[in-house]
Amino acid sequence: MATATDAAVDTADHGHDDHGTSTGISNTKLAMWGFLGSECLLFGGLISTYLLYKTRRGPGPENTVIPTDVFDIPFTSVSSFVLLMSSLTMVLALSAITRGDHPATRAWLLTTAMLGGIFIGGQVYEFTSFIREGVGYTHNPASSAFYTLTGFHGVHVSLGIVMLMSLFVASKQGKLRQEHSETVEIVGLYWHFVDVVWIFIFTVIYLIPVD
């Protein structure tokens, strides 16, 4: 996770080679895509763990409730919609800064961050209500795997929000100029990746019926 931010904040490093790069593509972007490829295996591991454990209930009455018993699909659908729309606003932010339209860039960055905030708020709500309904983290393998998977995703989104807010402040201070659009693009790649992971989670974890 630290690396995501590093890659994003290290964007300035790409200016080193005066002669350009061998492949003609930006170092930072290449590193970011490599990192995202690597993240596929991280989330793949967590998702597989959940899939393996999704119906594993613990012994004893208090340990038997698993996440699929209490899923609130209508709410999660709204959350998914929120995150999906934040991907749209993210790409619009990038589009705005490549045009040099700074007010619009800021508007979209802030909108994206706020939508992300609503998503995380929704996740806090979801976790709280699940716990109230009897799915404790330590109750059974299914619940441990569920909270760990969605929690990891949530942490990724939260880090993304902090990055977006930082870009927003930088833009406000006039430090995010048009030629820095790649920084926005890098943060955007991260953000869309997190969205793509959620597309996967929403279908495979929430929607596919357990029988």
Partner: peptide, 29 residues
């Protein structure tokens, strides 16, 4: 998944190396 990756993440319009790197990780996973 495909639409977000191709359009929002610009893979369709960008260097194919990015697609290969990402698809490599994804396929491996």
């Amino acid at each position: 998944f495909y639409m977000v990756a191709m359009y929002f993440m610009h893979l369709k319009h960008d260097n194919p190396l990015f697609t290969r790197l990402f698809a490599g990780g994804l396929a491996l996973a």
